[in-house]
Amino acid sequence: MTEILIVAEQLDGGLHPVVGELVTAAQGLEGDRALVVLGADLNELSKTATSLDVDEVYVVEHRLLLEQTSEDLFVAALEQVCRQTEPRVVLIGRTFLGRDVGPRLAYRLGVGVAQDCIGLKQNEDSGRVVVTRPVYGGNAVATMAFGQQNPQVVIVRPRIYESVEKDVSRNSEIIPLTVNLDSSMMKVRHIERVKSEVEGVRLEDAQVVVAGGRGIGGPEPFSQLSELADILGGAVGASRAACDAGWADHSLQIGLTGATITPDLYVTVGISGASQHMAGCSGAKHIVAVNKDANANIFKEARFGVVGDWSNILPSFIVAVRDLSTG
């Protein structure tokens, strides 16, 4: 019997990177692990899935799942999978899809759900899952314990866990499952996705992010920030103040009301570090701050800081970074 059901979301025809991370998270819980892959023509993908450290791979094939765009169908399919396999825990990545599908699945099954978890473990006495999740814009961390109903639906923030190593010799058992879906279940109809023209690395995937805030004083300095980001192979971001002022596009916004980033290195220029901004970058491993106010909140979270006028500091910093990166 499957105890932990891991939803294997797809990205560009392969498995989403978060799936390997969910397997790692599941290793910390007791019980057999199963991946569920949903889509159409899943031969290749289910083989890939068997190389992860799981006991079973459930394969749910349905022609309506080919497009992978209907949350309504995912929720309906997962509800049926849960009723058939009766898992104790369901793990879903907090992706664009997962953060909607997870709660909807939970409400449909009448069970508890924890959104955006950064840690999970099993309570040794009760056997129930206990999660930690950032609340109040990352200014506090809550511990939450599930009640008695199963499944316990846990939505895990990406890039918190290391991905499990692939092992092609693993060969987990493939088990096809049948679900009943019809197009009337698609209450929300997908029309199209329109891509905005963003050059370079996506903010939320970037290993290095360089961002500007109110303190930079205008739109022009963003070209310097872009230059720095290019040298470091990273992406440019902005605080809400900079976006609201029209200095940067809203798609660059980092914070509670924007992107959540998890880079190794986050360089902030003229950002004070209000709690709503910190909510979007609490996953950054190392913060470097340039700000004229030595008491700015950002320095409480930063590993390295320079107090002063960014317009004097940044040019020499960029030159030195370029020299060191090429040298």
Binding site: V130, M144, A145, G147, A302, F304, G305, N312, P315, F317
Partner: peptide
């Protein structure tokens, strides 16, 4: 269905290393 069992404020790193120099350019 799920209950809050604890709430804490994560410790701030409080160990920011400030880079100082004679001029701001040098600090950069």
């Amino acid at each position: 269905k799920i209950s809050v069992t604890g709430l804490s404020i994560p410790p701030s790193l409080g160990e920011c290393e400030f880079i100082e120099a004679d001029t701001e350019a040098e600090a950069g």
